[in-house]
Design a binder for these strands. Structure first.
Lengths: 265, 265
DNA sequence: CGTAGAGTTGAGTGTATTCAACTCGGGTGG
DNA sequence: CCACCCGAGTTGAATACACTCAACTCTACG
């Protein structure tokens, strides 16, 4: 950690309410006034989706990037016989289809897992902005890298962990991710997912998720009342899951990189 | 498909041998002379790794991006009790640690699965180049998106497919990926992986990989002599694996996006 | 009051694992 | 030159983890 003026509020330059995109990017990059302006000038459209509705379906030609304002979504893939795999969850503050303009025909679907509100931005406009403001391009690369890390962790979870470990690991990942966007208490949060959805994320059957959750409860590790989940022993749970939050610590672009971005030689 | 002068050779401007990076990026973006110059000016260092050597180990502070010149590598994660999950394979032409400057402390390891030759580029220098040449930034985002697609597919494979389907699916993915870099025949290629490595990629035990491969052979779907694998019935294998190569078709940046990159309003 | 969605539990099954032994080929050193 | 060893593949037998099928509860909601 080198010296940096972290004293000044990140959005000191702001005068009116910032768009969701400005808020999101501003979390990990100190934005300049022109950059904020450019992001705010983007044509955005906010709308809601009811639980169960698809934001996009496999095969769509998506041309929008979405910022999740409220609610949870899931990117998933259906197999012909009905099996479903949820690739990743999108929580409030997350960005979906970040580089939508770069990848045509979508090969996955995205569903609202709860009632949600998202904010759509024309994907091509996003790219255009990065051409004028290269630091924003770096920000996008950075967000992409973070998403890759989450996907990699999901692969490890599903590929090499037992059901017991998988459930524990996901519970902790969600706790930490929700913390970052102030949607969780210290050791508890609202988990608006059915056991079927959990199973489709973890590569387990609904029934086995149920039994595994029950085991975690019986062992005094978690409590689950309705949708609210609280973790009684975070340390023990982390030990069981071999959970290391390092992969989630991406609050801000590393100093060296930010330096490279700011002082192009 | 809009009109575009696809007539001119992609590298007409080149006079000397292009670097690995120029070749790689040039595959999906028509590079301008200054862009090629900038990429060629990057300080690169080519070196070899023996099979089994680690290019990077979990916890390293990597500051390099690597282009794979020759050989196969694997990104993996070890669990405490010795379980290993291979996240992804890097084949010739692939790029590792693309946005290395953006993500400090590496949470995975990378191992040479065969003798390999890689080309290292200072990651921060790559970012700097994107600040001067924003189109290259878009190219990096694009490569990142492609990588995410591969990771997502790996999640589906490991999470919701049977062992039989997993092996078939991976065999086909490798066939198509190797095709793209001219490292495979029409229906066959060199598969330099042990059954243990395959298992660690597919989330299966060595023994079960062996039995599954035997089954595929007995059913006349694939042949396997030494390291050379040939597929007897690609269509039937694709049907079994429910394999759709759509997610691999990323030879070039889509027209609309390239237009956005080239004509920033 | 009936129904639908979500959760729970039991019983039987099956896919994939573990443990173990054995083969085969290539390389090395006595 | 041969014995040995190691890595990789193969196979059998027993086990275990997770799945399927099925029934039942509970709550919310119309």
């Amino acid at each position: 950690m080198t010296d940096r003026d972290d004293e000044s509020p990140p959005h000191a330059l702001l005068e009116n309410t910032p768009s969701a995109l400005v808020l999101k990017v501003g979390v990990f990059l100190h934005l300049t006034a022109p950059e904020i302006e450019a992001l705010d000038a983007l044509d955005t459209r906010e709308f809601g989706l009811a639980k169960g509705q698809d934001l996009a379906v496999e095969g769509d030609d998506i041309r929008s990037t979405y910022v999740v304002i409220e609610g949870w979504l899931g990117r998933y893939r259906m197999l012909e016989d009905g099996r479903r795999q949820i690739i990743s969850f999108a929580l409030p503050g997350d960005i979906l289809n970040l580089d939508g303009a770069l990848v045509t025909d979508y090969v996955y679907s995205v569903m609202a897992l709860t009632d949600t509100v998202v904010c759509a931005v024309a994907a091509e406009a996003v790219i255009e902005v990065t051409q004028e403001h290269p630091r924003l391009g770096a920000a996008i690369s950075w967000m992409g890298a973070r998403e890759r890390t989450l996907l990699a962790e999901q692969i490890v979870r599903v590929g090499r962990r037992s059901a017991y470990e998988r459930v524990a690991h996901l519970i902790l990942e969600l706790l930490y991710r929700l913390h970052l966007v102030h949607e969780a208490e210290k050791r508890s949060y609202e988990l608006p997912l059915t056991q079927e959805v959990l199973g489709d994320s973890l590569g387990l059957s609904l029934v086995h998720v149920n039994r595994t959750l029950r085991r975690l409860r019986k062992e005094g590790l978690v409590r689950l009342e309705g949708n609210s989940l609280s973790i009684d022993d975070v340390d023990r749970l982390a030990e069981i899951a071999e959970f290391d939050p390092a992969y989630l610590r991406h609050e801000h672009i590393p100093d060296a990189a930010e330096k490279a971005i700011n002082d192009p030689t």
